[in-house]
Computed example of a mutant assay.
Amino acid sequence: MRVILHDPDQNRAAGLITELKRHGITVDVLPKTAILNGASGLDENVARLLPVVLGFATGENAETTTRQLRKSGSTNPLLILQTDIPPNDLARILDAGADDVVSSTLNYDEIAARLRALTRRQFGLRTQEVQAGDLTVYLDGRHPNLAGKPIKISASEQTILRILALNLGKVVHRDVLFDALYALADYQPYAKALDVHICKLRRKIETLSGKGSSGIQTYTGQGYALNAP
């Protein structure tokens, strides 16, 4: 999973970057203005794959920024971090368009779980795993496995496989996959970088299966779909 973060609390931001990585979550830090201006331009299919996490200092007006983000057209899942929020203010932040608010002492395992829950809701899932034949894809950062045997894959490959699993049996446009990996980031590789990741991912699954099939099918001019390998 990849999330977009803005948090003026540098210690909290640094902790999120380090600790969420343990859960298979990549954190891209962006200025608030970049998020407000850029998130609204994302394709809706991309937006629901990119949760936005906004951190605020105690007493800062999170409601206004939340309204600004939603008014701009952003449909990204939105998690607000702000300690010691009075109950009435918390209710207003949720009503302004936030999907979740964490106002207690920061717990990284909890944050990771809440981010996974936000994504599950977007796709109507209730568990942290998707089964495609003998292939099990976990949504909580664990490596996938084939018939009980783990497949070690890179963070980018994990993101791609996770998105395909969330859309099991459906074609995912290559632009959606590319933007889920790189949208709003400073670094924008060539489009062929996606093909390289797909190729490596297929090879790893095929090698373990011994059947010459990864379950990842190419639809020329459209994208990719995951079926049972």
Results as ranks from 00 to 15, higher is better:
residue 101 V to G: 07
residue 79 L to M: 13
residue 105 T to K: 09
residue 112 A to G: 05
residue 129 E to Q: 14
residue 106 L to D: 03
residue 93 I to T: 08
residue 92 R to D: 00
residue 111 I to F: 05
residue 94 L to E: 02
residue 105 T to Q: 14
residue 102 V to M: 13
residue 89 D to L: 15
residue 104 S to N: 08
residue 81 L to A: 05
residue 118 L to N: 12
residue 94 L to S: 01
residue 78 L to E: 13
residue 114 R to N: 00
residue 134 D to M: 12
residue 134 D to W: 02
residue 116 R to Y: 10
residue 133 G to R: 03
residue 121 R to V: 12
residue 102 V to S: 06
residue 97 G to C: 08
residue 120 R to V: 06
residue 131 Q to Y: 13
residue 110 E to D: 09
residue 83 T to V: 06
residue 107 N to T: 05
residue 113 A to G: 09
residue 98 A to G: 07
residue 130 V to K: 09
residue 76 N to R: 04
residue 134 D to T: 12
residue 115 L to A: 06
residue 100 D to F: 09
residue 115 L to N: 09
residue 121 R to G: 12
residue 78 L to F: 04
residue 110 E to Q: 10
residue 121 R to P: 01
residue 97 G to D: 04
residue 117 A to C: 03
residue 119 T to K: 13
residue 87 P to G: 03
residue 117 A to P: 00
residue 123 F to Y: 14
residue 102 V to N: 12
residue 91 A to C: 01
residue 127 T to G: 13
residue 112 A to L: 01
residue 78 L to S: 11
residue 111 I to Y: 11
residue 79 L to V: 11
residue 100 D to S: 08
residue 113 A to K: 11
residue 77 P to L: 14
residue 112 A to K: 06
residue 89 D to R: 01
residue 75 T to D: 02
residue 98 A to S: 08
residue 128 Q to D: 15
residue 126 R to Q: 13
residue 117 A to K: 06
residue 92 R to H: 05
residue 80 I to A: 10
residue 134 D to Y: 02
residue 72 S to D: 02
residue 122 Q to R: 15
residue 109 D to E: 12
residue 129 E to C: 13
residue 95 D to S: 14
residue 104 S to R: 15
residue 73 G to W: 06
residue 118 L to E: 03
residue 111 I to H: 01
residue 73 G to C: 08
residue 130 V to A: 05
residue 135 L to N: 05
residue 85 I to V: 10
residue 102 V to I: 15
residue 74 S to I: 08
residue 87 P to Q: 04
residue 100 D to C: 00
residue 116 R to I: 13
residue 90 L to P: 00
residue 80 I to D: 00
residue 80 I to P: 02
residue 90 L to D: 07
residue 102 V to K: 00
residue 84 D to H: 13
residue 104 S to E: 11
residue 93 I to F: 06
residue 135 L to F: 07
residue 109 D to K: 02
residue 101 V to R: 03
residue 132 A to C: 04
residue 86 P to N: 04
residue 75 T to A: 11
residue 99 D to S: 09
residue 119 T to V: 15
residue 131 Q to K: 13
residue 102 V to D: 15
residue 121 R to H: 08
residue 75 T to S: 15
residue 78 L to Q: 09
residue 94 L to V: 11
residue 78 L to G: 10
residue 129 E to T: 15
residue 127 T to P: 01
residue 117 A to N: 14
residue 74 S to P: 09
residue 88 N to G: 04
residue 113 A to V: 00
residue 124 G to F: 13
residue 108 Y to K: 11
residue 97 G to R: 11
residue 110 E to H: 10
residue 75 T to I: 15
residue 114 R to Y: 02
residue 103 S to T: 14
residue 123 F to R: 08
residue 135 L to A: 11
residue 78 L to D: 12
residue 80 I to W: 05
residue 90 L to N: 05
residue 85 I to W: 00
residue 90 L to R: 15
residue 129 E to K: 15
residue 97 G to W: 01
residue 129 E to N: 14
residue 108 Y to H: 13
residue 117 A to L: 14
residue 95 D to M: 13
residue 121 R to L: 08
residue 87 P to S: 02
residue 86 P to V: 08
residue 135 L to Y: 04
residue 108 Y to A: 11
residue 100 D to G: 03
residue 110 E to R: 13
residue 99 D to M: 04
residue 130 V to L: 14
